[in-house]
């Protein structure tokens, strides 16, 4: 029963943050509403932790389960790929070239910059 209440608390907070994110987006349309919601959710959790109104233990179990299966919500939209079979046959090689070149360029640049800026710096 306690677990179910914790899941319901997460659902309520996410809905609240998303709604506030939509309101914020109307006035400051810089980020998508969901990203505003994400930042608000992080702030809300920090506030809850600092004030002990919502201690971490309430979220550990539901969040671990949700984060494990979160990619399920992307299934329907990803299956939409089946509509682009011709495109893949026609340009699949080029698309893959762009994908791999970009990914390895970013990996290399981020690692090089991290070596310059972060190595030998402790955060404790």
């Amino acid at each position: 029963m306690k677990n179910i209440l914790n899941y319901l608390l997460v659902a309520f907070l996410v809905t609240l943050c998303l709604t506030l994110g939509r309101v914020l987006h109307q006035y400051i349309p810089v980020l998508p509403p969901s990203l505003y919601g994400m930042l608000l959710f992080a702030l809300l959790l920090s506030f809850g932790h600092a004030t002990q109104l919502m201690p971490d233990k309430l979220f550990v179990k539901p969040m671990a389960t949700i984060m494990r299966f979160i990619s399920f919500v992307f299934v329907p939209v990803s299956v939409g790929l089946m509509q682009y079979g011709d495109l893949i046959l026609e340009s699949g090689g080029k698309i893959l070239t762009v994908g791999l070149t970009t990914t390895f360029s970013v990996i290399t640049l981020a690692a090089w910059l991290s070596q310059k800026f972060l190595v030998n710096v402790t955060h404790d």
């Binding site: 994110g21 998508p32 702030l43 959790l45 329907p76």
Partner: peptide
């Protein structure tokens, strides 16, 4: 039959606030 799952896409982004909160010390 599956379009209702798309309503969960936006909440999924909001949920990423949790790992952000966990790493806030960094």
């Amino acid at each position: 039959g599956a379009e209702y799952l798309n309503y969960l896409l936006e909440p999924a982004v909001v949920l990423l606030g949790y790992p952000l909160y966990k790493q806030i010390h960094l």
